[in-house]
Simulated scan of single mutants.
Amino acid sequence: MTERNGREAWPPELTELLRKVDKLRRSGRHTEALSRMRQLTETYPRQVRVLLEMGLTLGIWGSAPAEALPWYERALELAPGHASAQLHRALSLARLGRHAEAVADFNALEAGSFRKALVLHMKRAESLEVLCRHAEAERDWTLALAEEPGNPWLLHQRASVRARLGRLEEAVRDITDSLAASAREGEPVDAELLRDRGVLRARLGDTAGARADFEAGLAALREGDPPGLADDLRNRLQELA
């Protein structure tokens, strides 16, 4: 089979074969999907998409990032800079705790004008936080918010890192905006967010505001909230007494 740009031409039959594998994965038949993928990698060892799909079958559908990593590496050897392979290698590295390597991959993706900017900024921010590179993480949460303005979860993440940087007033504003955004979306009040804002207000010396948040948090508790949250809120109220 002839090659184009260092890659083998795409065999038409592969499209349907991979579609069948994906159907197996989505129906929960992981063992059968993995068996078929192994056969495909033996038959088409230089098809980048096949190598990538093998990695996805192991890493995403099989929750085995360590086993998936070599397949992403093989794909990148055949197609250096392949965006999907590089993204999933970065995600696997992060899941394995190899955050510095993950950040390097995310940086390379950004330099190549990766189209999924929201995913890149979110995941790089998470790795940067683990590495205690909080100023860079704050930058990425801000960039993620530029992609999805007003996202309550993103606002909470930026608030957390801003608190670590000592930017308490900005962190309070982010949590306030997060609570408002959730309310606009019809979501119930998040007791954890109220607790976190109360903690920040207490650190700022706003005792009345902190007390109001802790009391509102207790009133907002619902089934499924983290164990111990109610006790934490009560203890914090007692500390303010």
Rank of each mutant, 00 (worst) to 15 (best):
A94W: 04
L96Q: 05
L91C: 03
A111H: 09
H99V: 01
P80G: 07
R133E: 01
L78P: 07
L120H: 10
G97V: 11
N107S: 10
E67D: 13
C132R: 00
W71R: 15
L131Y: 02
A102P: 07
R95I: 02
E129W: 01
G59K: 00
H82E: 15
A111Q: 12
R98S: 03
E101N: 04
R124C: 10
R74C: 08
L87I: 11
E101I: 06
E67K: 15
K116W: 07
G81D: 09
L109H: 11
G81T: 13
P65K: 02
A111R: 14
H99Y: 04
A100N: 07
L93G: 02
F106S: 06
R89K: 13
H134F: 06
G97L: 06
K123M: 08
L76D: 04
L91V: 04
W71T: 07
E126P: 04
H99P: 00
L109G: 05
V119A: 09
A111P: 03
F106H: 09
R133Y: 02
S84A: 11
A135Q: 15
L93R: 12
G112P: 07
A75V: 10
L120Y: 09
F106K: 12
A66P: 02
A117W: 11
W71N: 10
A68I: 13
R98E: 02
L91E: 04
G59M: 01
R95Q: 04
R98V: 14
A111G: 10
S84Q: 13
S113L: 07
A125L: 08
G62P: 06
M122K: 13
R89N: 03
G112A: 13
H134E: 01
A125Q: 04
P70T: 08
A104H: 03
V103G: 03
L96Y: 00
A64K: 14
Q86Y: 08
H121W: 07
S127L: 11
A108P: 05
R98A: 04
H88Q: 11
W71I: 12
L93C: 05
H82C: 14
L131Q: 02
L93E: 08
S127H: 10
L128M: 06
E77S: 12
H121I: 11
A79C: 11
L96K: 03
A125K: 05
A117Y: 09
A79V: 10
